[in-house]
């Protein structure tokens, strides 16, 4: 389990670098490093489906973030009340960590999950659905409503992005193409 601690500390350091770097592009690349570390952590924790999806989604989010930040510079400004803001935020985070650390006592010990629900899925999944991948049998057979609602969320996201990005009211000739953005 040493490699798990190493990866987690690597991810925390990467997250701090991503938040504190003064160049936007390097902070986005540091975020990519955090995502790759998370994907490796998923593989160590025996979740290959989640690792593949995380890797792919991370790549896509990196491309879109770089597209958003490529032409811009970071207006870096420290004005007023720097000390006060930091004190407030640090005390809030410390309170959160204290309360959450107390709640951790009620969780099962790391390495021995409860598995009340998924014991049934694992025991009877192969007989009832015929799929050898238990995760696929859960998301597409036992809990297919989740997948349907997730498809709805994705569709709503597509519609939202299209309506945010779309321009109306600009009478330029080269922007007539973008009027067709809505489906």
């Amino acid at each position: 389990m040493v490699e798990l601690y190493i990866l987690l500390i690597f991810m925390i350091i990467g997250a701090v670098i991503a938040l504190e770097a003064k160049d936007l592009l390097s902070s986005v690349v540091a975020l990519g490093a955090v995502g790759l570390g998370l994907s490796m952590t998923f593989i160590i924790l025996k979740a290959p489906d989640v690792a593949i999806t995380q890797l792919v989604v991370e790549t896509l989010a990196l491309i879109i973030l770089i597209r958003a930040t490529l032409k811009t510079d970071l207006p870096f400004s420290i004005s007023g009340r720097w000390f006060f803001n930091t004190i407030v935020v640090v005390s809030f985070v410390a309170t959160f960590l204290t309360v959450a650390a107390k709640c951790l006592k009620d969780l099962p010990v790391f390495g021995s999950p409860l598995m009340r629900v998924s014991a049934t899925y694992i025991k009877e999944g192969l007989l009832q659905t015929g799929a050898t991948n238990v995760v696929a049998s859960i998301i597409l057979d036992y809990r297919a409503f989740d997948t349907l609602c997730e498809a709805t969320v994705l569709f709503t996201a597509v519609v939202g992005v299209m309506s945010i990005v779309r321009r109306t009211g600009r009478k330029k000739e080269n922007q007539v193409i973008e009027e067709n953005d809505e489906q």
Binding site: P48, D49, I52, T53, N133, V135, S137
Partner: peptide
Amino acid sequence: HGHVSPGGGFA
């Protein structure tokens, strides 16, 4: 091969 090996529709 999403139902036989890791992977699936999303990925």
